[in-house]
Write a protein that binds this DNA or RNA. Structure first.
Lengths: 122, 122, 122, 122
DNA sequence: GTGGTCTAGACCACC
DNA sequence: GTGGTCTAGACCACG
């Protein structure tokens, strides 16, 4: 499963997204240890520096904490994690609606389109 | 309304998106002339070359045509334009659903979330 | 039958080629009158200036003559026309062979490839 | 052997052709690194941007891949490379035959002409 | 006036 | 070091 990266978006930002997704999905739980920068680096075939940068960003977002000599861990702050999940959900929905309206679709068309697509694969 | 440009995405790609949106929304109709590369350049405060690059991409996507010495025009091929609109709609919806499911939401949660947000602003 | 033009090659050169082809094929015979620049212009939807330039080139190649107030005519010099035909034939074949060899094909492969293609459509 | 550039064709397209030829001939093998845009630039006495444009085109044709910070490489996809060679061969032969027929030569004359020329130099 | 190409030189992200 | 993007300014062909 060699996942590849988008071309126009910086790799470290894609890594940030990837980790956030894992946390929100629950693949990475509160307090759990993230792979080391070296591990991640070899796994995704990117430079450890790039991983490091992504982890730094994640720390700035207060979703992970790094403990010296131990590694990087998902925050224990469950409130923060729930908040993160809700926040991302609202953002995603909002930008989706905004994009669709920018394309000239009204609320009903959006609902209809969504139903159609959920029908096939729900 | 001086819209500015994103940092992470190349300007010329943002221009491509912008024009596609204008076409899909109907602000630019089939056969209509786009502003010249120089005009667009001064309007968006970017170099004409950058606009040129965007227009070249748009031509490769067969949504515009350039006529030597005359200018760049939205394609007259209405079928193509409708296809473009449908294609973008499906892509948007698909990636939205995929993203939401990646975050661990099921179909019903997605629908509910959407309704909630459409309620406020439909 | 709206014939279109290549993008990278100047239109007037493509016109030159077109006329030469008509002469070599015999569609335009020795002494025959070419359409006026205006006629050609409207027919091919190009500027008369462009046609004019093509005709000037053809005159420089001594395959047409322009007579003031009368129009542009294929040269009466039949020797020149035969020479033209032979010259073009040899040039075409030579560059074809050269191109194929540049691509790494040897004489036998070239012959074989040609037979194959002539088989379908001879 | 300082090869120079044609006047009527854009330099970057001539570069594209040149590289494709090198690949088809086997001078550049699957996975091999192309010279950097700066190297090529100085070698051919053109601006690195021009080389860059050619490389971008080649990537769009999926005959090369660029790896961030590493360089530009001939694709490892050997199937693609063989397809490329076959495709170019057929195109060359087809346009050759078409051109010759346009000039009024029939299949036998084409074959005869080819044999004549191959005789001298095969 | 239009788009298309090219140069020179700069800055960025990535390795 | 690599490719990718951008600017400023130039020249060309075409209408």
């Amino acid at each position: 499963m060699t996942e590849s990266f988008n071309e126009t978006q910086p790799i470290y930002l894609q890594l940030v997204q990837k980790v956030i997704m894992q946390i929100v999905r629950g693949d990475l739980k509160a307090g759990e240890k993230l792979p080391s920068v070296r591990e991640s680096g070899t796994q995704f075939k990117v430079n450890p520096n790039t991983v490091q940068r992504a982890y730094a960003d994640l720390e700035r977002l207060t979703v992970v904490e790094t403990r010296r000599g131990l590694g990087t861990f998902v925050t224990e702050d469950i409130v923060r994690l729930n908040q993160l999940r809700e926040q991302l959900k609202h953002e995603k929905i909002d930008t989706f609606i905004q994009d669709m309206k920018e394309m000239g679709f009204n609320s009903n068309e959006i609902k209809a389109g969504l139903y159609e697509h959920l029908g096939d694969k729900s």
